[in-house]
Write a protein that binds this DNA or RNA. Structure first.
Lengths: 164, 164
DNA sequence: TCAATATTGTTCCAAATGGAACAATAAATT
DNA sequence: AATTTATTGTTCCATTTGGAACAATATTGA
């Protein structure tokens, strides 16, 4: 709970980073803040430059790292509702960024794969995210960065099990 | 790039966590995954139980930790567009969760404060987020958790400066 | 075997969202 | 002082979003 002032409006009186320490769920807050800092500007740039909405580049990213996935898999990996993935699939099949092939065994599902064109696009998009990632983590030295990586990995694996 | 199969549809063949390691921007990815894991289920619960949308509880959280802020401050802290904050302000003033007082010096802006009622609501919401935070970080031991906290804090502060 | 239940992916619809243009005010520049 | 530029907060509008109901298929269990 910090003093702010409107008495002297010329100077920025309030330290807008205090909440990092004072909020009850400070780790969750910091994580979310960092995620937003990475994702929001990059998302806007991807939309502007490539015309993809979030569910679409998520789909592209997932398919870039697995030989094939079902829409259900993608929804689970990304924690997005199935209908947004479904929409993304249709638009991206139309754009020939991915391919869909009905499963002969289980006729409900279809397996999705990325095309060459899709892979090329993913590479360009990944460069945006990688760049922003480096900017965000530039405040850490090499050991710190490694340690953070390790801890995030462990936490993410634990959480994935939790989300199951 | 991992083998999956649709040949034997009964067993889950694909390890959906592999992407944590194989993706180009793995730190950014892990951070985002964790943020989503914390925020999505909690957000849904907050909406269900209290009827608040995201911009609204963000506003509440910000005002819980500063004596007063302008809408602009909140937009900056939360990295949300100004119009979503504006909407949230109006609804929450109507609900008497926050108060708005026009600034005499700079007539464009208004200073926002949280009410007692707003504070009580924030406490209840914070409990949801805190609980989820604990679940997500339960995979770490005490030292690891402390170390992660420290690294996240440093990175968040660096990023806040970057976002300025 | 047949009914009941679960799962996958889709469509529909109402709500949330964010960019852009705007009015009001303030600050900077001439 | 007058003009130009910047800032704050708002409204408008088109798009994105996600819950819920649904059809098709698969699985479970009586």
């Amino acid at each position: 709970m910090q003093k702010t002032t409107t008495a002297n409006p010329t100077a920025r009186q309030t330290d807008l980073t205090e909440i990092f320490d004072t909020i009850e769920y400070s780790d969750a807050y910091r994580i979310t803040y960092l995620a937003n800092s990475i994702v929001f500007p990059t998302y806007a740039a991807i939309k502007r430059d490539f015309g993809l909405v979030r569910a679409e580049y998520i789909l592209l990213a997932c398919l870039s790292h697995y030989d094939e996935l079902t829409a259900r898999d993608v929804a689970q990996i990304s924690m997005r509702p199935r209908n947004t993935i479904s929409r993304a699939v249709h638009r991206m099949v139309a754009e020939q960024l991915i391919e869909r092939r009905h499963n002969r065994v289980d006729k409900r599902e279809a397996s999705l794969t990325i095309t060459k064109k899709g892979q090329r696009l993913h590479k360009r998009i990944a460069a945006y995210l990688t760049q922003r990632q480096e900017d965000v983590f530039a405040g850490l030295n090499v050991q710190e960065r490694q340690e953070l990586s390790k801890l995030l990995r462990k936490t993410a694996l634990h959480t994935a099990a939790l989300n199951q």
